[in-house]
């Protein structure tokens, strides 16, 4: 079942076309990734989904409800983790979560019960009385995610949730999200420009200047937009050059580009003496993005 259906969505700000004729379908329980540079239209799409902005054209249906018809109901189904922490830095974690829960009509024993559930899941019992602004980056992100989940939403929107975080905290965030998907079967809608974050997604959409440029599973995208690579160890340059294929010198090896896995197999069969120590890998999401948009994404480690 599709939990999000966006059809022919367009939104402009004066002369800037932020989103152009975008159509996507997100299945329930999926990790759906929106990949694009800043200004690609990711945040605009999220703002329309959350009812903060109105679309110029097109429809957005969340869990069967049209955003134009009953945005208040949709707000109960969505939890958002923003790129920047937006909780009150001077209040305690408990006070922050209490005030946000109240906005969803969750008070008293219902609030305490939900807080206990989340506290056990995220191991934050010792943080409750601490001032939010004095928490570490990782602790803050955990609380941000709890805030987004306080009303048991069906969809968790992560708007560039790890931008500016150190690698350890990024890993922590992803461990939490993966655990959440397992435990609460929640749909995760992710926007990011970090490549390693989309390789684990069920489905990826690449946005470029408001236009959907490519979509598919990470494997489909890699197969479609990049070649395969054979990394050859313990060979000399002369042998590699004799293959007549594009290559890249690595510290202890050579990375040879081949069209696909079939061609790699053929090459191994033809020159078995060269393939004593080797590995075959798909192209990276960086390569996919470069191939699709002609642009390089900044930051991130590659898988």
């Amino acid at each position: 079942m599709n939990i999000i259906e966006i059809t022919n969505l367009s939104k402009s700000f004066k002369n800037i076309k932020a989103v152009q004729n975008l159509s996507i379908k997100v299945k329930e329980g999926e990790l759906y990734a929106f990949l694009g540079l800043n200004g690609a239209g990711k945040s605009t799409t999220i703002s329309i989904m959350c009812g903060e902005l109105d679309a110029d054209e097109g429809t957005v249906i969340i869990d069967g409800i049209d955003t134009k018809k009953d945005v208040q109901k949709i707000k109960n189904k969505i939890g958002v983790v923003y790129q920047k922490s937006v909780l009150d830095k001077d209040l305690s974690v408990y006070d922050n979560l209490q005030s946000r829960a109240a906005l969803y009509g969750i008070y008293g024993s219902d609030f305490e019960k939900r807080l206990k559930e989340l506290s056990e899941l995220f191991l934050i019992d010792n943080l409750m009385k601490r001032t939010y602004g004095k928490l570490s980056g990782g602790e803050k992100r955990r609380i941000d995610i709890i805030r987004a989940l306080i009303h048991k939403p069906k969809i968790l929107i992560l708007d560039e949730p790890t931008t500016g975080l150190d690698p350890q905290t990024r890993k922590l965030v992803w461990d939490i999200v993966n655990n959440l998907r397992k435990e609460e079967k929640i749909t995760v809608f992710l926007t990011t420009h970090y490549m390693e974050e989309v390789t684990d997604a069920d489905y990826v959409v690449i946005l470029d200047s408001g236009i959907k440029s490519a979509e598919g599973t990470p494997l489909e995208l890699k197969n479609k937009y990049t070649n395969d690579f054979i990394t050859l160890y313990s060979v000399n340059l002369e042998d590699v050059q004799k293959l007549g294929l594009p290559y890249e010198k690595l510290p202890d090896a050579y990375r040879i580009e081949v069209k696909n896995t079939k061609e790699a197999t053929k090459l191994i069969m033809e020159k078995p003496h060269l393939f004593v120590d080797y590995e075959i890998t798909k192209g990276k999401m960086d390569d996919v993005f470069l191939s699709v948009t002609g642009k390089k994404l900044p930051g991130g480690l590659n898988k």
Partner: peptide, 9 residues
Amino acid sequence: AYQDLLIAP
């Protein structure tokens, strides 16, 4: 913070 408050119903 206001955006975060408005995201709720």
